[in-house]
């Protein structure tokens, strides 16, 4: 665990030592601010639910951007071999890098906390859904990050990693929109697989263990796959 945290700290600091984190966070905040605050006073409701819907969309390109280089870049430059010859396990490397990306996501979400704080001074804001909304974003974003780490473990090209994880995340996100065109039996399964189905429940203020288990399962399975993918270089 100590080694995992050391890797996480190093990676997390790395984000802020390059302009990447600042560009991603600033762009994210500008887009969020524009799309959330423009219609806000027209709707005239003391609610930040619209913010979660927007964030869910904006996470789609943001999360792959944060993870695309985590393993792919190390592979391309060959530093992965140096890293893996150190006294750390493959799993610790994967989890450490994942935690660093999760930390950056937390910083991103922390920045948007100014929105509900602002809204609460303009009207009576129900804080329950605000907290569960952030939990939803952390879980959905966490799942996207795990998929990003997985995609990054498959290739040594950052762009390929970005598009691969972007497409997978988009598929998980968009699939619920096609449910009316599917047969009933398939629709139930596909609906359960979609991010949006589980995310919306949390975003409106309902914490259901099924939704939490779902996101944790996606995270867990993606990270295990990434670990096996990294490990496969020894026998493939």
């Amino acid at each position: 665990m100590h080694r995992t945290l050391t890797i996480a700290k190093r990676e997390f600091r790395g984000y802020f030592n390059s302009p990447a984190a600042y560009i991603v966070v600033c762009l994210f905040l500008i887009l969020m601010g524009f799309f959330f605050w423009n219609p806000f006073f027209l709707i005239n409701r003391a609610s930040v639910r619209g913010m979660y819907d927007l964030m869910s969309v904006l996470l789609l390109p943001t999360m792959p951007a944060l993870t695309m280089g985590l393993l792919a870049e190390e592979k391309r430059t060959g530093t992965i071999e140096i890293l893996l010859t150190m006294p750390v396990k493959d799993g610790e490397v994967v989890v450490g890098k994942y935690l660093a990306a999760l930390g950056l996501l937390a910083v991103l979400l922390l920045c948007t906390l100014a929105y509900p704080l602002s809204v609460s001074t303009l009207g009576r804001l129900d804080w329950g859904p605000v907290f569960t909304g952030y939990l939803a974003l952390l879980l959905e974003g966490g799942a996207m990050l795990a998929i990003g780490v997985l995609a990054s473990s498959w290739t040594d090209n950052q762009l390929i990693a970005f598009f691969t994880s972007g497409i997978i995340c988009f598929a998980f996100w968009v699939v619920s929109r096609f449910l009316p065109f599917m047969p009933q039996a398939a629709a139930s399964v596909v609906e359960w697989l979609s991010f949006d189905y589980h995310y919306q429940d949390l975003a409106r203020g309902v914490v259901d263990t099924r939704n939490v288990f779902y996101f944790l399962s996606v995270i867990g399975f993606s990270l295990v796959l990434a670990f096996r993918s990294l490990e496969s270089r020894r026998w493939s």
Binding site: D126, G128, P129, T132, R204, G205, V206, D208, T209, R210
Partner: peptide
């Protein structure tokens, strides 16, 4: 499963 509605 369990479920908590956090709305006021």
């Amino acid at each position: 499963h369990s479920r908590v509605d956090t709305t006021d």
